[in-house]
Structure formats: C-alpha cells, structure tokens
C-alpha cells in the first residue's frame, strides 16, 4: 500500500514538475504539417520530417510568460505553432524596443543558438502560445544530415540580418521621429474641422519604417513634451518644437 502511494506521489511530482516548467514532451503530438509551415522545414521530404520530429519538444506558454530572458544561455530554437510571441530588448532605464513579433510559422532565438552565445533578446507570450522547440545539439546534428534544412536556415538568417540592418538605420538617425513629426503636422485637423485619422500602420507605411518604430517614436515625442497621447488621439502640444524636429516649414 505504502509503495503504491509512493509511486502515485512520484508520478504526480513528475507531472507537476513538467507542468511547472511549462514543458510537455510528447513526440507523437508533434505534427508534420505544423513543422512544414515553418521556414526551417519547408520543402523537407516526409522521411526527413520524421527524422526531425523525434528531436522536437512542445512547450505551452501562458499569456505574459517570459519564454526567454535576454542574456541567458541560448539552448534551443523555438517555432511558433499558435499564438504570438513578442521578441524585444529592454534598455537599462526600462524602455522596451520590440524587435519583431513571432506569429505561427515564425521562429525565434535562432541567431544566438547558431552563434554559440547568450540570448540577444527576451521573448514574451502575448497570448496563449504553443511552441515547438529544438535543442542546439539536435539542430546541429540535423543540419549536417539535411542540406535542405541548412539552405532554409541560411535564407532565414539572411532575412534576419536585413531586418536588423533596417532597424539599426531607423534607430541610429532619429530620422523616423522626424518623419513621424512631419506626418503628424501634415495630418492635423484643419481649420474646417476636417480630421485625418491615421493608424500606426498608416504612419509606418508613410514613414517607410516598421510599425514598431511608430509606437516608440510617438512615445519619445510624448516624453519630450511635443505631443500628448490620449485614448485615440494624438494631441500636438508644442507645434513649433514638432516643426523643428520635422525639419520643415509647415
């Protein structure tokens, strides 16, 4: 009897341990179609996918949970199966810069895993999220065996570099803030009360930048006292200063 209770207790502890870690290991649950929807595994043959499946673990994450902390050792690449993950960096004074949003079909934590380093950014679940993960060693072993996988990863890492260079350009030169200031001045309610309503996506397209940069620029303008952000309004509080930032004589 005592042995039976101990056994049940030990099974429960093991299950709770896995739940606490948010990790459920279940090779059978790993679906080939879910894998194929990711850039890493597109174009792989059914046999090649089977060889990948055995290395995949599944992780369920609740909204608001941090999946990866910036600076911790990068042990695995994650693939988003459902939900949205925010990949971001935080400055020493607590300001957040979103690098990108990883949606179903996207991956994250790939660069540090291949670079043998620490995680370069944090990752937080914005919704309930299901992830597939692959440990660094397993990924490297598969890379050596599957040329198509290596080709896919090369393409994806190239895209990441292009994305980062574009972000560096925007962050370096304050030019986005100037363009946002100009857009606000050009779209302010006119003397006839005619309003031009703008989404952050509109502003991003007009400024030629990522949407993530618009939110940051508006916040910076608010911190500097040039605008005030209300529920669905941008109130220009210092038009002259905004004109100066925009570098235009509107």
């Amino acid at each position: 009897m005592k042995g039976g209770i101990e056994m049940i207790s030990s099974v429960c502890s093991a299950l709770l341990g896995n739940l606490e870690a948010g990790i459920i290991l279940n090779d059978m649950a790993v679906k080939a179609e879910s894998l194929q929807s990711n850039t890493y595994f597109s174009g792989l043959s059914p046999e090649e996918l089977v060889s990948i499946q055995k290395h995949i673990f599944e992780k369920a994450v609740t909204r608001g949970e941090i999946v990866i902390f910036e600076g911790e050792p990068a042990r695995a690449v994650y693939f988003v199966i459902s939900g949205v993950v925010k990949v971001f960096k935080t400055s020493s004074d607590g300001k957040e810069q979103i690098i990108y949003l990883a949606r179903p079909g996207d991956s994250f934590n790939d660069v540090p895993v291949f670079g043998e380093g620490l995680s370069l950014a944090s990752a937080e679940a914005m919704t309930q999220v299901v992830l597939y993960g692959m440990e660094k060693d397993d990924l490297e072993a598969s890379l050596r065996e599957l040329p198509k996988l290596a080709e896919n990863i090369l393409r994806l890492l190239s895209q990441r570099i292009e994305q980062m260079i574009s972000l560096v350009e925007d962050l370096s030169f304050r030019r986005v803030m100037g363009r946002v200031a100009k857009i606000l001045l050009e779209n302010v309610e006119d003397t006839n009360g005619q309003r031009h309503r703008l989404t952050q996506q509109d502003m991003a397209a007009m400024a030629g930048t990522a949407r993530e940069m618009i939110g940051r620029s508006l916040k910076l303008l608010e911190d500097e006292g040039k605008v005030r952000l209300e529920r669905n309004r941008v109130v220009i509080t210092d038009k002259e200063a905004l004109r100066e930032i925009a570098g235009v004589g509107i």
Binding site: N187, E189, N232, R233
Partner: peptide, 26 residues
C-alpha cells in the same frame, strides 16, 4: 475598448483591424 492599446491591429496578420488616431492641436 478602454485602452486603445492597438495590440489587435499590431498582431493581425492580414491587416483586418484598424485603430486610427485623430491628430489635433491643443
């Protein structure tokens, strides 16, 4: 929608949601 956080617009993969702002002068 009390916050106008625009997260719905941000995550929409097909651009089906818009949270527009009015731009006004104080």
């Amino acid at each position: 929608c009390s916050k106008w956080c625009t997260m719905c617009e941000m995550v929409c993969p097909v651009g089906a949601i818009q949270c527009p702002f009015d731009v006004i002068t104080e």
